[in-house]
Design a protein around this nucleic acid. Structure first.
Lengths: 293, 293
DNA sequence: TCCATTCTCTGACCGTAGTCAGATGATCCT
DNA sequence: AGGATCATCTGACTACGGTCAGAGAATGGA
């Protein structure tokens, strides 16, 4: 297995990696091309560029100066905070970026060009699978405080999604509460999944001593579905619950959340009679946990 | 399709490419590590290193000097041609290379680590497919003169394989002859498939004006089977035959060559009565060609 | 209000990768 | 034997990517 991965790395970095860079750097230094690309059509503040590309502030500054003197980029102070500067593409810069775009398309087409139709389809399908799973492999799941920026983003997105999907909307005030304190150890646990630093999912647990633990706030961003993040969050939370002596995990859910219900069922949850009076719930599930040694 | 390829390129070059380099370069410049790796356990002459890595001769020389002064490599004049020098790893160099090897394994394991077993298997399978098809996509098929070094290598390998696989061996003198002149335009055509410059397959055609053309010398190196090279050679040769007015392509083959027979059948060839007296043949096939406009 | 912090920029600096033009010695060809 | 060619090496040079230490302006908090 490891040998196959290494073979893959070798072939792909040679074939794709090298070509990619050569295509991107057309007479201009690679760093500048990358920056040009990252600025994007709508402009972007220098600070976010720095963190996105993980570069030294002095270095970014110099690259911007160079792009500026080439007439591709213009910078201006940002309106809100006049310390940060905003980089925008000029018309020439936009044209250059479009060109990079076309070259990337050409490169992609070139990779496919020599293959007959059937193999081409198989290659693209396999690429999609590799990309999906490699992305999944870089998702990090870690405990977070409910007041963290990432955690709050997730919890807001969670409420917004319920509101959008429930028939008649979702009003948190009518629902059974789960305050920040309930999701913080030792009372509970909040896990946040991040991809390249951006929050893409969460899930929480409320512990009740020797009583079953409650599962709360399961949410995965639309852009990150299909990567098995929900399943990972669920497994981690169950492990945590078991470690803290919970004999089972239970949860309530709304009929509109069909994927979530499918996930619970496939993870071994069985439907049980209502164990609380949550007004938004249609189904109640429970899964016994193995007792800890 | 192109968009998927681009997404793949982005994700993979980031994830795999960058990591790969960081792992290989452990405090030492990347170029040196790569060279150390390429020298291999048995040593290698400087010339082949230069062509394999596609580097300037002066640059390679300097890298070798640096590795030498670090005590990792020793060079000596080659026995045969005293202009070329041979680079060998010292014990320390061998240890260092082993370390790189281990780190590559670690890297590969790291990529898989966060995934659950099932996704891991799917990732590795998809990687194998991408690697295989990407390799297939870089195979070049081009006409060659039968006296070229690459062509001669293929023709020798072809005869050697027949000799190994035919019951009772294969003696070219007893078989119907096909001289170099027969495979050279306008009498015929020889195609050679190369992968990174190394010959990995061939196929030839003898034209007979308005009579069916004859297929000859189909061979694919064992290391390159399963990449669709045989099928590509066959298709190219058929195209060529049709362009030169051949109404059909026909061929004779030995019962031992089961994959070849399967290929012919699946490409639309039908078995016909013997049309010549080739002593090594058990089967004769023919495929009609569409008339050219 | 003052002090600490944040953001950007400049100048100085470094190592790596890579190119180019010979010089030297070995080999091949005639 | 002599000239052309080849493999290697050295020296000089360049661009690129990147780091570090401030300086200066803007902002936020006590």
């Amino acid at each position: 297995m490891v040998a196959q991965v290494r073979r893959f790395n070798r072939v792909v970095t040679q074939q794709v990696g090298a070509l990619n860079d050569r295509f991107l750097a057309r007479d201009r230094p690679l760093g500048e091309s990358r920056l040009l690309w990252e600025i994007g059509a709508d402009g972007r503040d220098v600070r976010s560029l720095r963190t996105a590309l993980d570069l030294d502030s002095g270095y970014v500054s110099r690259l911007l100066r160079s792009l500026e003197s080439a007439g591709l980029v213009a910078t201006e102070p940002s309106g809100a905070d006049r310390r940060v500067r905003l980089a925008r593409l000029t018309d020439a810069g936009r044209a250059e970026r479009r060109l990079l775009d076309e070259r990337s398309d050409e490169l992609a087409a070139l990779l496919l060009a020599t293959l007959p139709e059937r193999q081409r389809e198989r290659l693209v399908a396999a690429m999609a699978e590799v990309e999906r799973l490699l992305t999944a492999a870089t998702v990090r799941v870690a405990p977070a405080d409910p007041d963290d920026a990432a955690a709050r983003h997730c919890l807001r997105a969670y409420a917004a999604e319920l509101n959008a999907r429930f028939e008649g909307g979702f009003d948190p005030a009518r629902s059974i509460r789960a305050d920040a304190a309930d999701l913080r150890p030792p009372a509970g646990l909040l896990l946040v999944a991040t991809l390249h630093g951006a929050p893409v999912g969460c899930g929480a647990l409320k512990l009740h001593g020797a009583e079953p633990a409650e599962l709360k706030r399961m949410w995965v961003d639309e852009s990150a579905r299909g990567l098995g993040i929900g399943r990972r969050l669920l497994a981690e939370l169950e492990r945590h619950a078991a470690e803290h002596g919970a004999p089972a995990v239970r949860l309530e859910t709304n009929a509109a959340l069909t994927e979530a219900i499918a996930l619970y069922r496939s993870a071994g949850y069985a439907e049980v009679p209502a164990f609380n009076a949550e007004p938004y719930a249609h189904h109640w599930f429970e899964k016994p946990l193995p007792p800890q040694a």
